[in-house]
Simulated assay, not measured.
Amino acid sequence: MKDMTKDTSAGAAGRRRVVSGDPLGPNSEIGRKLKQYYDELVSDHVPDRFAQLLSELEQAEPARKKD
C-alpha cells in the first residue's frame, strides 16, 4: 500500500509544470504587445477641441448633480 502512495505522489510531481520567470507563459508576447499599444495610446496628444469639450462637460456635471 505504501508503494502506491509513493508512486502516485511521484507521478503528480512529474506532471507539474515548471514555473519560469515569465508569469504569462505562452501569452507573454500578446501581453507585451498590449502593454506597448496601451503605453502609446496613453502618451498620445489630446486635440485641443476634445480637451475643451471635456472641460465643458466637467463644469456642467456639478450643476446637473444639484438639480
Rank of each mutant, 00 (worst) to 15 (best):
G14R: 04
A13Y: 13
D3Q: 15
G31D: 01
S9W: 10
D48E: 11
F50V: 11
D22V: 05
F50I: 10
A60L: 12
G25L: 01
Y37C: 11
Y37W: 10
P26F: 01
D48P: 00
V18H: 06
L41P: 00
D3V: 12
D67P: 01
M1D: 13
E61R: 14
D44N: 13
I30E: 03
A10P: 04
K66S: 05
S20W: 05
D22F: 01
F50K: 11
Q59E: 05
K2E: 07
S20R: 08
R17S: 07
P23F: 03
P26Y: 02
D39N: 05
G21M: 02
G25P: 04
Q36F: 00
S55A: 15
E58Y: 04
A13P: 12
R16V: 15
M4G: 14
R17V: 14
P47L: 14
D39A: 02
R49D: 10
S9H: 12
T5V: 13
S28K: 03
V19D: 06
P23G: 14
V42P: 00
D48I: 09
S55W: 06
R49S: 13
D3G: 10
A13V: 15
G31I: 03
L54S: 15
A51G: 09
P47G: 12
Q59K: 12
P47S: 11
Y38A: 04
I30D: 01
P62T: 06
K65R: 14
G31M: 00
E40K: 07
R32V: 02
V42E: 04
T5C: 11
L57S: 10
E56Y: 04
A13H: 11
R17I: 03
A60V: 06
E40G: 07
G21I: 00
Q36V: 05
G11H: 08
K35R: 15
T8Y: 05
Y37G: 07
E56W: 07
F50M: 09
E56F: 13
S28M: 04
L57V: 08
A12T: 10
P23K: 01
Q52V: 15
T5E: 15
L53W: 03
E40D: 11
D7E: 14
L57I: 04
L24F: 00
D3E: 14
